[in-house]
């Protein structure tokens, strides 16, 4: 579904990602693990067109993404939940979700989005900025889903979220995958969450994938070594 080949990217003249290869099957959840500064967010932003790629190929469902503006990538089927959630704080919850509808041409958010996140239905008239962190995270996911994506990118979704909600989130993501056949690429530092949610784990270190394992074969100690500071 999502395919990247020899992807290189970075900021200004300094290269951060040194040629990444990865392929996500439809309905597969892959976790990219790594410490701060190893290139997780850079990968997400490059896929989303927020920072330009320096080389390599990326595509979603055979549509090449290279050089496309962000909104064209959304239309091609990529959706993005950024680090820090970045919801539109002055817009209401409902309006936040509706911003995601732009590429679909629909006027109203499908009801199953709200049934997936009932708290958003209760809060639909409140401003996004007045929600708690966990609610904002749900809102950011719902907003991303409103564009009917084929691939969902989640950048450190557990950051600053309380443990009980992290559990819920893992369950929701798996339900989503089952219901919609969505491929999900999630970057993460918390190994327990990654093991809970992902089918496959890749470890990124200094802009290179250095380790890869199916969930069943993950050597937790080996992965921990890449995560500890």
């Amino acid at each position: 579904m999502l395919k990247i080949a020899n992807l290189r990217s970075g900021y200004g003249a300094s290269e951060v990602l040194h040629g990444l290869d990865l392929e996500l099957a439809p309905g597969e959840i892959v976790a990219v693990m790594g410490r701060n500064g190893m290139g997780k967010s850079t990968l997400m932003k490059t896929l989303m067109g927020i920072i330009p790629a320096m080389g390599g190929e990326m595509s979603v469902a055979q549509t090449p993404l290279n050089g496309l503006k962000s909104h064209k990538r959304v239309a091609a089927g990529v959706a993005y939940v950024p680090q820090g959630r970045m919801i539109f704080s002055a817009l209401t919850v409902q309006e936040n979700i509706e911003t995601g509808l732009t590429v679909t041409g629909r006027r109203e958010a499908p009801q199953d989005l709200y049934s997936m996140f009932p708290v958003l239905w209760e809060m639909r008239g409140r401003r996004g900025g007045n929600l708690s962190g966990g609610q904002q995270q749900q809102l950011a996911i719902a907003r991303a889903l409103a564009s009917d994506p084929k691939t969902l990118l989640l950048d450190e979704p557990t950051e600053g979220i309380q443990p009980s909600i992290i559990k819920d989130m893992a369950r929701t993501l798996k339900q989503l995958r089952d219901a919609r056949g969505l491929s999900i690429l999630v970057s993460e530092q918390v190994l327990s969450f990654a093991l809970d949610v992902a089918d496959r784990i890749v470890v990124i270190d200094n802009g290179r994938f250095v380790h890869e394992a199916q969930r069943a074969d993950v050597d937790a100690a080996a992965v921990e070594r890449f995560l500890s500071v």
Partner: peptide, 10 residues
């Protein structure tokens, strides 16, 4: 940036 990333042609 985020508006673009949710699909709005900024």
């Amino acid at each position: 940036t985020m508006a673009g990333a949710v699909g709005i042609d900024t």
